[in-house]
Amino acid sequence: MEGVVHMEFLEQAQTVNSERYIPTLRALKLRLRRVRRDKDSILQHDNARPHTSRQTQDALRQLELTTVPHPAYSPDLAPSDCYLFPQLEKFLKGHHHDNDEEVIADVHRWCSGQSSEFFADGVHQPVKRWGLCVDRDGDYVKK
């Protein structure tokens, strides 16, 4: 909740699969060891195929990364989808970038400029949405 711990960018036309995602998890684990030290970390991600594959699940166990169970495809419940990315998109809207490096620099600049309260809000904000989802027996929750 204190900020972005690890960030990676894909090359254009590259897709995420288990083969690509597992090295990201390994890099995340190393980064968590350096910056979070004794603090417990919990990984929340959606049910995208690269996150749920047997290979990824095996890697998560091997890396001892704790994950929060996520209901079947519910992008409205992932903090990154309902909070972080819309805020970032608002920031980037109207900016002109000549190349990928400029976009990456702007994303880094924006993330490092956010307060720990901003990230804490992003973690706590979905709790309300989760409640709505439970009240609606798992139905999609619109913004």
Rank of each mutant, 00 (worst) to 15 (best):
M1G: 02
E2K: 13
E2I: 07
V4R: 02
V5I: 11
E8K: 08
F9Y: 09
F9E: 03
F9I: 08
L10I: 05
L10K: 11
E11Y: 14
Q12V: 15
A13H: 10
T15E: 05
V16L: 13
S18Q: 05
S18Y: 01
S18A: 12
E19T: 10
E19A: 13
R20N: 15
I22F: 07
P23Y: 08
P23M: 11
P23C: 12
P23N: 07
T24Q: 14
T24M: 15
L25T: 00
A27E: 07
A27C: 04
L28H: 00
L30Q: 15
L30Y: 08
R31Y: 02
L32H: 04
R33C: 11
R34I: 08
R36V: 13
K39A: 14
I42Y: 01
I42Q: 01
L43K: 11
Q44C: 07
Q44E: 04
Q44Y: 05
Q44T: 13
D46F: 08
D46A: 07
N47E: 00
H51G: 06
H51N: 13
T52E: 00
T56R: 13
T56G: 05
D58E: 12
L60W: 02
R61L: 15
Q62R: 14
Q62H: 14
L63D: 00
L63R: 03
L63F: 00
E64M: 11
T67M: 07
T67Q: 12
P69V: 14
P69Y: 10
H70C: 09
H70N: 10
P71R: 15
D76A: 08
A78W: 00
P79L: 10
P79M: 10
S80V: 01
D81F: 09
D81K: 08
D81N: 10
D81I: 08
C82S: 12
Y83G: 05
P86L: 09
L88R: 06
L88P: 01
L88T: 04
E89D: 09
K90A: 12
K90Y: 01
G94C: 06
G94S: 01
H95L: 15
H97A: 06
D98T: 05
N99F: 02
N99A: 07
D100Q: 12
E101A: 14
E102N: 06
A105S: 06
A105R: 08
H108C: 14
R109H: 12
R109V: 00
W110T: 04
C111R: 04
C111M: 12
Q114R: 15
S116T: 10
F119A: 11
A120T: 05
G122W: 06
G122A: 11
G122C: 11
V123P: 00
H124S: 09
H124K: 09
P126C: 09
P126S: 08
P126G: 04
V127D: 02
W130L: 10
W130V: 15
G131E: 06
V134A: 11
D135N: 15
D137K: 13
D137V: 09
G138H: 07
G138E: 04
Y140T: 04
V141M: 02
V141R: 05
K142C: 06
K143G: 12
